[in-house]
Design a protein around this nucleic acid. Structure first.
Lengths: 340, 340
DNA sequence: AGTTGGCAGTCGGGCGTAAAGAGTGCTAAC
DNA sequence: GTTAGCACTCTTTACGCCCGACTGCCAACT
């Protein structure tokens, strides 16, 4: 079902116009604004054909046409004219990322913020799971007489959110020894492996075994714990006229504020494409709410996946801008992080 | 302007009924449901008097009465019957807090989650600023050949979100030495003090001064960095009929998703009360949106403020439940944390 | 003096009708 | 293949209307 050039052009016009105005597009509107060389009747028959093909729908008999999810897909993959960011915007992105440094979570937080600012949509990010990376260092840091912070360093991540408590005070020396031994034992294994193995052999380390078991528990917890989802501008969805309806808002927010659902939606499909576009529809149970689209990208540095970032908004989304922003943030990010 | 007992009773009835039903309360409704001993005409004159006193308002001449912010204030401080949590709810709270441990941020996250679950409102929490506490330990932990994590331990907090990068690889020994020296130099001072002092004297430490200055920068950043605001259930506001209006939702979300604004609202006023209730109105520029109320409490353990937690929702809020939940979560939390 | 029933007055919400407006689909002619 | 024209459909808005829900006031009662 190849589309004629004119059909493509008209479809592009419909999508562009609908994205801009949020108003169903009529044949007259098309001829007036974009195609003065033909009459509205001609366009009408083309529109009718495009509807037959599943690219357009009508809300009711006497309304203009609205793009279907299929139309958006085609638009993004073939019809859309790619946007370029202004120099100002590019510099802004660069500035943020060179000023700040830190671990992946911090980078993602900033990326999400920038993306939301530049696109004016709700933006989201999840760090790539590092639990299948090899452990490099395990370190216990004594914080209180009877408590220590468990740090796990893998190639791309630092896990630093778990604590262990001891029944009584433990000397710094013991803790340092334990750190060194743990690193020796577990370096080269992944957290998932550690979580799945039983370490009966550790029982031999008499005086340390208690600490070891606690650390293993901490490791296991990291392995199953959900990744943080970072989000910015969840209220921006309200700026769009299709979200004047409270039920839709409710639905949107309930999806967006559920970490599990967002991780699921953002989870990259292993496909090796830079930018993925998911468009919500009734059948598509991907988790993307109907009428919503998610545009996302997975960024890497030195061959290691860093995380997935994206934008969620109405299907009637400014894909040109969004794709441009995601691509550029990605490029700049990967450059900076790879050079390190 | 003391209210007669009957006026108080009627005002209480109006607030109770309005909280329950969200419908303006009429005189007939009152006599039918709550005061069968008098006629509606009698109640009408009382209502009229209460309106005169500023406790009630009418949306239009032929509507029932709605409580004013003043009425809610009086209701919470004098009229309301305190609620008790069920044993099931109490056990649920206890279970969560004994199972989990960790630093303050983790505790707050959990508290906020529980509060939102039990009250069914949007709940929020901010850790108390620890930047005016005395530093106990400064520790640099080598993560990569040329990068270290900066840990600062104060009495109640652990700061663990700042990194420093070195131009070249630095040995573990040097880093450990630096940690020890830094702890000696800065222990007993607060981060705010450190941020305000200039440490020209450090220039003498030749080979360490570079590391020192970077750590001081990190300290300064902690000192000015905004506290995290934890939030749960921001979509729950939509369950209330007064938030059927998109503009109000927008306003609510824009306040709630601004960390600065929330910190401002939650900032405890130094007053030594356990539970604070702020009710939004036009004049009151406290930052609480009109039509909203914030109920919050500041929790401490061992004389040290831990953080402020609360609930934000429509002024027509189930104060009985909310106050009970906040009080009990606080009690349980303080018990558990003090015994440690 | 406080309370009550009754009644007039006000306002909002729901409903049907009417008219206007926006678009389409179809057809006959070019 | 394209076009102008026309009939048809459906939404939106407005208007008028009536009903119901309250209140406020007043005169009568306890």
């Amino acid at each position: 079902m190849k589309l004629s050039e004119r059909k493509k052009k008209i479809l592009q016009i419909v999508v562009d116009d609908y994205i801009e105005t949020a108003v169903p597009v009529s044949s007259k509107n098309i001829t007036d604004k974009y195609m003065k060389d033909v009459s509205s009747a001609t366009v009408r028959s083309e529109l009718s054909a495009l509807e037959e093909l599943g690219y357009l729908t009508q809300l009711h008999t006497s309304s203009g046409r609205v793009p279907s999810p299929e139309a958006y897909k085609l638009y993004v993959s073939e019809l859309m004219v790619k946007d370029k960011l202004s120099v100002k915007e590019l510099n802004y992105i660069k500035k943020i990322f060179t000023e700040k440094s830190g671990d992946i979570e911090y980078v993602i937080k900033n990326a999400v913020k920038i993306i939301s600012e530049l696109t004016d949509y709700t933006s989201i990010g999840v760090p790539a799971a590092g639990t299948d990376e090899k452990i490099e260092i395990i370190k216990l840091v004594k914080i209180k007489p009877d408590a220590a912070l468990v740090l796990i360093v893998t190639q791309s991540r630092l896990y630093k959110d778990n604590y262990i408590n001891f029944p009584e005070s433990v000397s710094e020396e013991r803790i340092n020894n334990a750190s060194d031994m743990l690193t020796k034992i577990f370096a080269g294994k992944t957290m998932v492996e550690v979580a799945e193995t039983s370490f009966d052999a550790l029982a031999q380390f008499e005086e340390y075994k208690e600490i070891f078991y606690k650390v293993i528990d901490a490791l296991k917890e990291y392995a199953v714990r959900n990744e943080n989802v970072f989000m910015e501008g969840e209220e921006k969805i309200l700026n769009h006229p299709e979200y004047a309806d409270v039920d839709r808002i409710k639905n949107f927010l309930s999806v967006v504020s559920s970490n599990d659902k967002m991780v699921n939606i953002l989870h990259d499909d292993g496909r090796d494409i830079s930018i993925s576009v998911k468009i919500g529809s009734e059948e598509n149970a991907d988790g993307v709410p109907e009428g919503c689209s998610v545009v996302s990208a997975t960024y890497s540095a030195n061959g290691q996946k860093l995380g997935t970032y994206g934008v969620i908004g109405p299907s009637r989304m400014d894909y040109q801008k969004v794709v441009a922003v995601l691509e550029n943030v990605g490029k700049i990010l990967e450059n900076i992080l790879s050079n390190k």
